[in-house]
Amino acid sequence: MKIINRQSWVGMVFLVTLECCSFLSAMVWPSWAAPAEDGVPEPPSGMQYIVGGVYAPLFKEAGVEQPTPVAPFYLDIYPVTNAQYAAFIKANPRWRRSQVSPLLADVAYLRHWQADTPSPEAATAVAQRPVTYVSWFAAHAYCRWQQKRLPSTAEWEYVALASATAPDGSKEAAYQTRLLEWYALPAAAMPPPIGSGQKNYWGISDLHGSMWEWVADFQTAFSPGASRGDAEAERDRFCSSGALGVSEPELVNYPALMRDAYRRSLRGTYTVHNLGFRCAKDLP
């Protein structure tokens, strides 16, 4: 009587093959075989991983949770450029300057292009500069096209709080002074090309000193109240000095205060010469 008959040979060969395949695939795709050491997947190209944290909003408001937790997410290293936005327009003609709905952008949309697509000279001049004169709806649509989204105010401010060397640069006097000095300068004709500034602690560039940026929930920067005509909402809309109700009045972060004031002046359709955006993305 044979000990190893045909069936058992087949069985063994099958098992061995299975084992080899498993081993080989572990070699080729190690992440599948075992999770990565730190559990963080690689960020998509052009983005950085931002670890979670907590953001303390500027104003104490009754009924709103404070401080706001920020879950880990990815953020674009650079703002979206004119070149990138041009690609979006090509794929989505309804967002061309001549086609866009007045519900989604005001009359100054892409004014600096002067046409549906910029001339070659204009294109070269603006290609690597952040795109401006785009509305919130346009920024939102672009990010969606990229399977991304706009960052929330908490996410943006959390990342922007960092200096070059620390996650919280609000106590670095020299750094804060430099930020404040940007507001002393008149607005430039165009924001500088991306990468002009230093990358901050998170590896994110051009958050300061370039232009203002859209965030997903800029409209919730103030308490909505029962209706738009509510006096409370109106009070917060124009606001007063930085000391009123600020979470840490003795350490007022003036640049953050001015960004907050700027956001309150915006509507979704607004396009402004110094207002652009970058995208964020949830972890998989």
């Binding site: 919130w136 709806f137 929930d217 919730t220 103030f222 909505p224 979704g268």
Partner: peptide, 9 residues
């Protein structure tokens, strides 16, 4: 945003 409605947690 299109409807002009604001909301916040």
């Amino acid at each position: 945003m299109l409807l002009g409605i604001t909301y916040k947690r």
